[in-house]
């Protein structure tokens, strides 16, 4: 029963090897879906290319229902998998700053590495920026430590906060995602980009 490393079916070192293999899969899928192109990524915000929206939400709903089915079959103990803790103010502020970074730089950290791997110089510069940004955060930590740790809510699930079962929430997210896919496809027709 999963997660394998928690249930000591695989060792901590094997886990690192698995991390490497998972990374290869991650990088391969990102690159072959076109996430190595910043203009393709940014396209979602202008409607000319919504590949980000499609890949991102398809991946989220696939993993979400995958986990729920695996739990249903007793293959994985959902109480043992990592759930991101929720700190409301820093999640909103951090997300907003990342959103600005996304539209300025055209990448997110994962895709920038993927893009740098195939030789995009703008991605390499973006990675340089990432390092600077993290360093700034680390050096000025005392200035925003209070804000960083404010509003801790534990590790609630959205389903719990809304009072729904996990299954119902997953169904809602699937419907929302499919709705967005149709809007995305419509937008691609409505706002075509002339050249590539």
């Amino acid at each position: 029963m999963g997660p394998l490393v928690i249930n000591e079916i695989i060792s901590a070192n094997t886990n690192l090897l698995i991390a490497f293999l998972i990374g290869i899969g991650f990088g391969f899928v990102l690159e072959s879906s076109g996430f190595s192109s910043s203009r393709k990524l940014a396209g979602v915000f202008y409607g000319y290319d919504t590949v980000v929206l499609k890949v991102f939400f398809t991946a989220a709903i696939t993993a979400m229902i995958g986990l729920l089915f695996m739990s249903l079959f007793g293959w994985i103990d959902l109480d043992l998998i990592y759930i991101n803790p929720t700190y409301v103010p820093s999640a909103i502020a951090g997300g907003a700053i990342m959103g600005a970074g996304f539209i300025f730089g055209g990448f997110c950290p994962g895709t920038s590495f993927c893009s740098a791997a195939i030789g995009k110089i703008d991605a390499i510069v973006f990675i340089g920026g990432l390092f600077i940004g993290i360093l700034i955060f680390a050096e000025g930590y005392s200035l925003w430590e209070g804000f960083y740790k404010a509003g801790f809510k534990g590790i609630p699930k959205l389903s719990e906060s809304l009072g729904l079962t996990d299954g119902l929430l997953a169904f809602g997210v699937i419907i929302a995602a499919i709705g967005m896919f149709y809007v995305g496809e419509w937008a691609e027709k409505k706002f075509p980009r002339e050249e590539y």
């Binding site: 709903i61 229902i65 729920l68 089915f69 739990s71 249903l72 079959f73 007793g74 103990d77 959902l78 109480d79 079962t165 996990d166 299954g167 119902l168 997953a170 169904f171 699937i174 419907i175 995602a177 499919i178 896919f181 496809e185």
Partner: peptide, 26 residues
């Protein structure tokens, strides 16, 4: 293929929404 894709996900979502969650644990 898009219709099939949507239907598969909606179908799976309906199944998971209709099953009581995580009966395997306790």
């Amino acid at each position: 293929s898009r219709v099939i894709f949507s239907l598969v996900f909606v179908g799976l979502g309906l199944i998971i929404a209709a099953t009581p969650s995580n009966t395997t644990k306790a």
